[in-house]
Design a protein around this nucleic acid. Structure first.
Lengths: 221, 221
DNA sequence: CGTAGCATTGATGTGGGTCAACGTATGTGG
DNA sequence: CCACATACGTTGACCCACATCAATGCTACG
């Protein structure tokens, strides 16, 4: 994977020697905010939700899918986690002790450079997610999600919802009830839902409503 | 400053040779989102607001005060800015060409290490700001701001608002109207406002309402 | 002084959360 | 294989936080 591409062999071995790969069923809390960051997690398979709580409320901060990492920033600063993580699907996670990551970084500037890139990308994705949340309405976020899923899955006018709707709702920062209502709003723009399948009558009409913005939606920049 | 402490002398010289220090009056847009990241900005004096726009709306993402930096992540990835920045006070800003920062990083692992720390801290502060916004109500955010300002300014029961109220409102993620209302809400917890001065009758009552949370409020962790 | 911008207050609108009821699907045990 | 249980999904009613709009008051500076 990208993170280890420029890693020296001995450093890589040292990391892997201390690492372990573990399977988790769905709905498991992998880390909890306020705990010290003792492991770097790399998600190999599945889907993980990052969230935070305060005063009985909870908010979704983002999602990690293969081969993303968390929580790199806490590991690097040797601090507590600011976020919690739970699996949304059966997942496989590679865990590397934080201490090893820090010493590998000190020993191998190629690895450190990769870490910097990964960290910067995570940072930028968080900023994009924040903009998505604060500058768009619920139905707009859904419209953009559909367009992205369609691009990702192929060019058909059918889009499969590959997770439970309640999970999609959380991912889009809304309640399940409001997700239903958001789908109803999008009916006017040629969207129909049948179970786990979405039909897109007119990509153009949907795109006009969604107001695609590369500074929010592009996951490579 | 911390960012250059472990920097090799020749690398530091190379950075400073290409850098320039500039003064800006209040209300100047220093960078604009979607532009390529050509300069790393280090704020030496003053106050800068980071914000983003989309579809006619605008949202505050955070604030930078001395000796913070922006936009490190964009500079490191050689990408466009995702945020815009404007001065909220007269400010002095040190600007270093992005290319120099990247080559200095490649040449000097001490500097790279400092960059990693700065980037991770910025990342974590953004996450805290996001939690502050999404998990607290407006009056709660104000209460926490008052408590922090009080700690910062001294132990008196008077707290000075050192910026225009409209600026404070933006910083707290609300409109000026709602800031007024938030102050009214806090009357019940012993807060009175007189122009630019806040009086805190009982720190304890305010703190109980504010629900201080180190995972949101501490700026060092 | 007078005026322009800032601050406050009130009225109103809206997005989205919450609660409750009902419908629908899925899987399990008799 | 059916019946029921359990969870998920949808819909409607309602509420709350906050934005918006409009009017007025305040203050500061030329």
């Amino acid at each position: 994977m990208r993170l280890f591409r420029d890693c020296r062999d001995d450093v890589f071995d040292s990391l892997m020697q201390a690492a372990f790969l573990q399977r988790f069923p769905r709905g498991v809390e992998l880390i909890r905010e306020s705990e010290p960051a003792d492991m770097l997690h790399i998600i190999v398979e599945g889907l993980v939700q990052m969230f935070a709580s305060h005063g009985g409320r909870e908010t979704t901060i983002g999602f990690v899918r293969p081969l993303g990492t968390f929580i790199l920033a806490a590991v690097l600063r040797d601090q507590v986690y600011l976020q919690s993580a739970r699996t949304l699907e059966r997942s496989r996670v590679l865990m590397i002790p934080a201490e090893r990551v820090r010493s590998a970084m000190a020993a191998d500037s190629g690895f450190m450079s990769a870490i910097v890139g990964e960290l910067a990308m995570g940072y930028r994705n968080t900023v994009k997610e924040l903009k998505n949340q604060k500058l768009r309405s619920g139905p707009e976020r859904l419209a953009n999600w559909i367009l992205r899923a369609q691009r990702f899955q192929g060019k058909s006018d059918r889009v499969a919802i590959e997770m439970e709707k309640r999970v999609l709702a959380a991912r889009l920062g809304m309640t399940p009830e409001n997700l239903s209502r958001a789908f109803n709003v999008l009916k006017a723009y040629g969207i129909t839902v049948q179970g786990a399948e979405i039909r897109v009558d007119s990509r153009d009409r949907l795109a006009a409503y969604a107001k695609i913005n590369p500074l929010i939606d592009d996951f490579t920049t």
